[in-house]
Design a protein around this nucleic acid. Structure first.
Lengths: 207, 207
DNA sequence: TGACATTCTGAATCAAAATTCATTTTCTAA
DNA sequence: TTAGAAAATGAATTTTGATTCAGAATGTCA
């Protein structure tokens, strides 16, 4: 009985924490970190201002923790999705697909990831453990290595290709999200994938 | 004589204005827009806080003007440099070269461009004319169009390729700048260019 | 040189919002 | 049921930093 109740308490606690994090992500994404007031988030989450400080040290901490949970969740989803693909090259392509789907459904997440991800170098120095994209890059690089072993990729530089893939996706999605969806994501993705696959040179073309 | 003196005055004025802009760029780059105090910039520029307001309406205005001058200057330099190349494909490659050189010399400019560009999405709504990267992208897209006409590029999508080029460069340089130069820029650039030129595929696939 | 204009200064003002904490509400367990 | 613990509240406090402006410094020119 004690056990049950105690776990119920934990549940409730984490529920409140969770509500705050969700509200934080959405509000940060919509208004930007600095324009978001703690009271905005509190209202959104249905708690009092002070309650936020029971779960998070301060506003910076809230940003970091929110991001961390967001990334963890998304990376997990991404892994599950890509694991289904037969070849590693296809998993790499799936990386794009996943984000297109995700951001089409929730553009504010695109904005959050693309914009709030970038903090000043001072911020990074203050919180050296805050390396939000690193896990993403690492995962990408693992896929690339495997795809090379598999023989479907030529011997390109792993880091360079991961930068191309991540950087392009990130930039295209930022443009798309901050400019109010000025183009269709899906065909754009196809065109980008085509270039990354086959290169831009005319000479290689054989038709 | 009066003419001479008056122009000397203008000179002096623009010198002070210039000092403020330079200090602004460097400080915004290091700390981010919102964490930068006007007093930081003033101190850096060697003027009083109030002086800043003689040259700029407010903090927003200062950011916009700083960015504008930075971009204009750099774009001008870039144009002059690329104009020397014989083919448009080579001009495209030069686009990378230029930024590698620029950012190696002044990493904080890389940070400013990459970070403030993003953080300032909030400015897009408030100041619709503030579209700092647009001119860059437009220039890139012009080069791509010409290169296609020239026959050195296959018929790739212009916007897609511009996103790949700009996004990759932007991301790689941001990584490089915020992580304290963890790799050599020049070889990294070569590896990236190789992939963008020739694609990542081991075997040319037809699908 | 001296009257006037221009430029600069930085302390004082003011607003916004992060954070705290005395109080209230809710929960726990005997 | 109830005393005590834990969690939550939100008004009050504090911090922060943009902006102003009265006065000082400097420049102009007859």
């Amino acid at each position: 009985m004690a056990r049950y109740q105690s776990s119920r308490v934990v549940d409730k606690k984490s529920q409140k924490r969770c509500a705050i994090i969700e509200a934080a992500i959405e509000t940060f994404a919509n208004k930007g970190f600095h324009r978001t007031k703690i009271s905005d988030i509190a209202k959104h989450a249905g708690v009092a201002d002070g309650t936020v400080y029971l779960y998070f040290e301060n506003k910076d901490d809230l940003l970091i923790k929110s991001f961390d949970e967001l990334i963890s969740g998304k990376l997990e989803e991404l892994r599950q999705l890509t694991d289904k693909e037969d070849t590693y090259v296809n998993r790499l392509i799936k990386f794009f697909d996943y984000h297109v789907t995700l951001f089409t459904a929730k553009p504010y997440i695109a904005r959050f990831m693309a914009i709030e991800l970038r903090q000043s170098s001072e911020f990074y120095q203050k919180y050296p453990d805050y390396q939000p994209i690193k896990r993403y890059l690492t995962y990408l690089q693992e896929l690339i290595e495997e795809a090379k072993k598999e023989g479907n990729l030529r011997d390109v530089d792993t880091v360079a290709l991961s930068y191309i893939m991540f950087g392009t996706m990130d930039f295209a999605l930022t443009e798309w999200a901050t400019r109010n969806q000025p183009f269709d994501l899906l065909p754009m993705k196809e065109r980008i994938v085509d270039i990354v696959r086959n290169g831009m040179y005319a000479v290689k073309k054989e038709d």
